[in-house]
Simulated assay, not measured.
Amino acid sequence: MNQGWVYTDRITPAAAGLSVLDFYAARYRHSSRAVWRDRILSGQIRCDDVPLAPDDRLEQGQTLAYHRPPWQEPAVPLGFEVLYEDGDLMAIAKPSGLPVLPGGGFLTHTLLHQLRLRYPENPPIPVHRLGRGTSGVMVLGKSPLARSVLSRQLRDATATARDPQAAHPIRKTYRALVGVSDLPDEFTLTTPIGKVDYPALGYVYAASPTGLPSYSDGKVIQRRSDSTLVEVTIRTGRPHQIRIHLAAAGLPLLGDPLYGVGGLPLAVVPAADGTVPVPGDMGYHLHAYRLVLPHPRTQEPLEMLCPAPALLQPASG
């Protein structure tokens, strides 16, 4: 069991006048209206440490606190290998299954919490994310300079992504497994990615004509009788970009429980408890294989490699 958590919300003009129950049921659709009512009645929702009632009306500027009791988090792999480390940055091999940041049912079973436990004096901070089901190399900033420079370089890379001839100092390359395909040996995917409505969560990121520009450059590594092994280098860093781009091209990652052909969430019927597939669900095969970047202090090029799982390596013969 973890120690529980307090989630806070500040009431905006748009939410003023709503009842406490209406606010939480509309804003956090991962739980039903009945569940939120029970939480409110049990005193878990407070303002200035005073429990609220379901029908209490909200006022602009109030800060609400949801006191979530301790809960048992799902088991995940908590260890990780350090691939590179100096005074400014660290690169690690994140295992598939380990969330990077708290969210959903995860609080302490996250990479961020494990970093704080392992390095209590000065924990390294992730400067980019990998999905829970994605394994491979991640870079972390240890010094303020590294965090600032790497964050700026990632923003600059996204800003210049439209031009394939532009300098791309940070290059992130992944291995992925899709079904049998007629993909060309080399390809570029440019489907825009944005928020789309999704039951229970409110929204997920997916293919959207009104989304943000997104660019992925890929090549086929091996064509197999039952699958295709591809390598994808992303020029932008949109959420779940490779999963969405390959699905939009008609080739969802094998085992992906969320994204179907077209790059949109699969049509699902919620389970009896109201749950639906979410982006953090497992089953797909995606691995951050290579990360190339200039060192934030010296600008010398660095290449970090994390060997792919056997299924994402070319088969011999």
Rank of each mutant, 00 (worst) to 15 (best):
K172A: 11
Y198D: 05
V196Y: 12
L130G: 10
M90E: 07
A65W: 01
P184S: 00
G103R: 02
A146E: 08
R68K: 10
L111C: 12
M138L: 15
Q299V: 00
Y198R: 02
V268A: 14
P51N: 00
P239N: 05
Y174Q: 10
G61Q: 02
F80H: 06
L251S: 08
R243Y: 12
Y24H: 00
A166M: 04
P77E: 13
A34H: 06
A207K: 10
P13S: 06
D197H: 14
A206S: 03
P144R: 01
R27H: 14
G274P: 04
A267E: 08
F80N: 04
E59D: 12
T210E: 15
A288I: 09
G43S: 05
S32G: 15
I125F: 13
L286I: 10
W5M: 13
L18Y: 01
L140C: 14
A25D: 10
L183S: 04
A15K: 08
D49K: 08
E231L: 04
G260T: 04
F23E: 03
D9F: 15
D49N: 12
L98E: 00
T160D: 09
Q222A: 08
F23L: 02
A249M: 12
V100L: 06
Y284F: 11
L266W: 04
L111K: 03
S32Y: 00
A206V: 11
L41T: 13
I40C: 08
G255C: 00
D226R: 11
A34T: 08
T8P: 02
G17F: 13
R46I: 06
P279W: 02
V261C: 12
G237W: 14
P239S: 04
M282R: 05
N2Q: 07
Q62M: 15
P184C: 00
L101A: 05
E121T: 03
A25K: 09
P124Y: 09
A271S: 10
L266I: 13
T63N: 03
Q165E: 15
V178R: 13
E73W: 01
R162V: 14
A167M: 08
Q3G: 12
V220D: 05
Q114E: 15
P74S: 00
A207N: 06
T160M: 11
G218D: 13
K219P: 06
L266Y: 07
I125S: 07
D48V: 03
G263M: 11
K195E: 03
R297T: 05
A159N: 13
A267P: 04
K94L: 13
S181Q: 01
F187L: 01
V180T: 15
